[in-house]
Design a protein around this nucleic acid. Sequence first.
DNA 1: AAACTAGGTCACCAGGTCAA
DNA 2: TTGACCTGGTGACCTAGTTT
Lengths: 430, 430
Amino acid sequence: MPWIDASLKGSFEKGGVILYVGSTGGSSPTPGSPPSGYLVPSPQHSLPSSLEELTLTEIGAIKPQTASSPSSPKVAFQFPEAVRYSNKGPSPPTQSRVPAAKQNGATGTFTKTGGMVLLCKVCGDIASGFHYGVHACEGCKGFFRRSIQQNINYKMCVKNENCMIMRMNRNRCQHCRFKKCLAVGMSRDAVRFGRIPKREKQRLLDEMQSYMNSLNEAPMEVSLSPEADAPPSPNIQEEEAINAISRAYHDIFVSGQDRLCKHGGTPGVEACPLSNYNDQQLNGSYGYGQYESSSLRLSNYGPQESPSYVENSSRNFGNEIFQAQQAGYLHNAGRFPAFDYGYPETNAQRGCTWRGTTSRGIACPLNAIPYSSNGKSSQQVWEEFSQCFTPAVKEVVEFAKSIPGFQSLCQQDQVMLLKAGTFQSNVKVF
Amino acid sequence: MPWIDASLKGSFEKGGVILYVGSTGGSSPTPGSPPSGYLVPSPQHSLPSSLEELTLTEIGAIKPQTASSPSSPKVAFQFPEAVRYSNKGPSPPTQSRVPAAKQNGATGTFTKTGGMVLLCKVCGDIASGFHYGVHACEGCKGFFRRSIQQNINYKMCVKNENCMIMRMNRNRCQHCRFKKCLAVGMSRDAVRFGRIPKREKQRLLDEMQSYMNSLNEAPMEVSLSPEADAPPSPNIQEEEAINAISRAYHDIFVSGQDRLCKHGGTPGVEACPLSNYNDQQLNGSYGYGQYESSSLRLSNYGPQESPSYVENSSRNFGNEIFQAQQAGYLHNAGRFPAFDYGYPETNAQRGCTWRGTTSRGIACPLNAIPYSSNGKSSQQVWEEFSQCFTPAVKEVVEFAKSIPGFQSLCQQDQVMLLKAGTFQSNVKVF
DNA sequence: AAACTAGGTCACCAGGTCAA
DNA sequence: TTGACCTGGTGACCTAGTTT
Ligand SMILES: [Zn+2]
Ligand SMILES: [Zn+2]
Ligand SMILES: [Zn+2]
Ligand SMILES: [Zn+2]
């Protein structure tokens, strides 16, 4: 179990849950407005209860509002909704950028108070607002605008016209990007001006709240098994616990970055998650390369209906989720989910959420790219790391399970305890 | 968007100073972003204080902006970061090209007003912009593009695959040049389009400013000489913190056993925690974005502390620094102390304690012996692990140190917090 | 007035070119 | 093959205009 593998689906922490809200597509009033957004509630999963506290997309706004309290935790949650935009492409890793970092220069944070952060329906990047009927980032907004202004006819897709569009690779296939824009509902006719009706805001808020509640009741049931369909394994719980901890390890370094891809890949290799990028190669001697190792195969995104939700904020998660949705849970096409998600992104990109989180822009750097002096790719390093330590992690998990009462705890708590106890290992015990 | 945030490192020049900011790779959350840039502040070390005055990389831009004031003296300084890209190869001296002379034919100077000039992360030449996630010159940009487009497999290096890549000799070994490109983080996934976020720019500026200030106080003690024996670093505290966390990581698995010995340290190294460490760094932060660097840091480029900085001169200087980094510090190249020293003490002793502690004999198994399928010894596995993740750990420590008040805590508490926060990385805030 | 967005602007880049 | 130059975008910011 490559933990790493993780799939990442999420884990969350109390204080810092991130919810990636995917819109269900259904309810939102607006045309294509599936809500996908990030909400930043107060520490506990409680969401802001009043509208006053909510502010959508502060991002994008360059207003000197600054000063805000960037620090509040963010929750990003995605409503269950799988995007069915076709794609079978390899599920790309996500990367994320730091929310804060991005956006308007003024403040880096997106929200001020209880802000909610939205994700671009097209590429998964942070949305700057509701553009052309859909929550979209500045990039996709501009791209769509240009596309419709001049009625551009992008050159045909070199692949199968089903390129997965993500922040990292959104510029690689205009044809598919535009197609995706239309698919998610962008249209000149869907434009909405002016302030968001209170009612609408409340509605969204309610959805999130109820969604959150449902999560508490039924903890994630993300299947970690590679086979997405993962049959109900008897102890999914266990697996999850293991996965969670694995993920946690990975997260330490990965945190929101997208880096994976970068380094990871050799150009060609890279895997690209996103793109199809066929060009692979390069592998050879540059050490990078091969990720495919079966070993890790972690798995992947399980099917889930559930919203995935991850902790860490990082956009990664959001992205992962985004990706998973996009891909439709492709079941892993031979790639590496685990890592993928992580990086790319971000934070290749902005990767890092935390990056600019604090008001002062202080953000803990969580570098997922291990140093490698022998030419190995980060991915390889992670794989090896995963392979080497998985047994030890399993032992710990097994041990935990043997503790009376441990298994009766909700999974979330189990994970929390495992993680919390990591560095207490030396502690003897009472 | 990975990049996005990225780096930005930009460069600006005010009066005509050129700052070469090497990123430490550290602080930036993002993947790799070691900032390497030149700053051209006004005559004195003062840097432009407002963004308005800033203009990044004017170079490359052919705009008729001309007229700049080429004459001002340039300062090139590199943030601490030692490049350890191995090499013993003949290190050809670099030479610089005249700033003015180079670049666009139009103007000879690179920047107009307060521009900042960046150096190519690959060869040290003047960068024309942020290409494929890294500040690179036109040559390396083109080389990398060609490399990934056609998946070229350059013929093997005739030396030891550790050719030092510099402007003068960059065309001598394609294999190593490409390897270097990858090492510094060039990737299609790290591409960043569009304008550099203001905030990023400002951040960079601030960092440079503070860096400059620090220089004024404590003039460089960076030894440019390759032999950097790292002067006794002033803050032992920092080192200790790093050591502690390193140890903690190790402890996770090792925990009480005596196993330590086994993997233990590399002979010499381990022991002294603090000691070796010269290279370390904790650099500064120049982290720009993610993208750059660090990520791949595979090779090496480590940060180092001393920035060299030259005045006047121009590119020459920059190059020297570049060379020093590249070449220098190699001696440390060999290993990475950071992690090694860690363990011994801690565990060793308590070693087995908990082992049978509980009444029922229940004891959490903490297997310090990593699974190894490729014949490596546990020790080797640990060493590699240590080597690979040390940079990431350092980054985290650096981050922690930057938190107001953190350093005023006793070391024990600092360590405790670092350890306790390990798995909270995801937690967004508070 | 406050909250929001379509569009415009222009700092910036991937890629293509082609002389050396 | 290289790398200085160009060209066609891309997207961070801004501003004018819309809706609460
Ligand atoms: Zn988008
Ligand atoms: Zn396509
Ligand atoms: Zn170069
Ligand atoms: Zn070579």
